[in-house]
Simulated scan of single mutants.
Amino acid sequence: MTGPGTISGVGLGPGDPELMSVKADRLLRNARHVAFFRKEGRTGQARKIIDGMLRPDVTEIAMEYPVTTEIPLTDPRYNELLSAFYDDSTARLRALSDAGEDVVVVSEGDPFFYGSFMHLYTRLRDVCPVRLVPAITGMAAAWTATGEPITWGDDVLTTLMGTLPEDDLVEHMRRSDALIVMKIGRNIDKIRGALRKAGRYDAAWLVEYASMPGQTVQKLSEAADKVTPYFSIIVVHGQGRRP
């Protein structure tokens, strides 16, 4: 009897395929089944990163998100739809595992850092073999792109989601030495306002498409009122103790 197959959650890193781990590269090039998340009608960023790396006979499993931006995060339907989506995706992967097939599920960045694979992992870990392959995060690529260290000495680094209420953003921004702000998009005006209230606006950098084609790095104050793309991160460097 064939034992159950292993579901591998593989982090791809920030976007540049050359920043992928050796282990991730090996698993991908040998995988018979590769699953990835995407929006309906889109290729998906994770799939773009691995283009040209897969074996000719690979089976690709596209897991398409059911929720778009017209449903507020506070609407109960948002969680209901996402939960059903993750349950369905889990069932598809578990069926392959039960049949003895290994599956590689790819994630942008690191699978355990605000990644969709986390929701599959918690559903799968007690019912089939699961392994994780960590990766460089997008924020690491972003602060590297600025050419300045993100933390010094005893600096406290805080990672914030732009979806938080403005007052919460301000509180965290005031208390931390170094800042990373993610999920910017349509939250950019709120984030700008929070940075100004916290006295951090002039020190903020905007990095778009870190490590990817089209990467840009500029002071946030010089970005005017442009709409930032999905792959944008705001960086505020710590200025702590140093020799």
Results as ranks from 00 to 15, higher is better:
residue 64 E to N: 11
residue 64 E to L: 10
residue 65 Y to M: 11
residue 66 P to W: 04
residue 67 V to P: 12
residue 67 V to F: 09
residue 68 T to P: 11
residue 69 T to A: 12
residue 69 T to E: 13
residue 69 T to G: 13
residue 70 E to Y: 12
residue 70 E to R: 13
residue 71 I to W: 14
residue 71 I to M: 14
residue 72 P to H: 11
residue 73 L to F: 14
residue 74 T to V: 09
residue 75 D to G: 10
residue 75 D to M: 07
residue 75 D to R: 12
residue 75 D to I: 12
residue 75 D to V: 04
residue 76 P to E: 02
residue 76 P to M: 01
residue 78 Y to M: 07
residue 78 Y to W: 14
residue 80 E to V: 00
residue 81 L to M: 13
residue 82 L to F: 11
residue 83 S to Y: 03
residue 85 F to Q: 06
residue 89 S to Y: 08
residue 89 S to T: 05
residue 89 S to K: 03
residue 92 R to G: 03
residue 93 L to Q: 05
residue 93 L to S: 05
residue 94 R to N: 07
residue 95 A to Y: 01
residue 96 L to V: 07
residue 96 L to W: 10
residue 97 S to A: 15
residue 98 D to I: 09
residue 99 A to Q: 08
residue 99 A to G: 12
residue 100 G to Q: 09
residue 100 G to F: 02
residue 100 G to M: 01
residue 100 G to C: 05
residue 102 D to L: 04
residue 102 D to M: 04
residue 102 D to S: 03
residue 103 V to K: 02
residue 103 V to C: 00
residue 103 V to E: 01
residue 104 V to T: 08
residue 105 V to G: 01
residue 107 S to V: 11
residue 107 S to W: 03
residue 107 S to H: 05
residue 108 E to N: 13
residue 108 E to L: 14
residue 111 P to N: 12
residue 111 P to Q: 08
residue 113 F to H: 07
residue 113 F to A: 11
residue 114 Y to M: 02
residue 114 Y to H: 08
residue 116 S to T: 10
residue 116 S to N: 13
residue 117 F to Q: 04
residue 117 F to E: 05
residue 117 F to H: 13
residue 118 M to I: 12
residue 118 M to N: 13
residue 118 M to S: 14
residue 118 M to H: 04
residue 119 H to K: 00
residue 119 H to V: 00
residue 123 R to S: 02
residue 123 R to K: 07
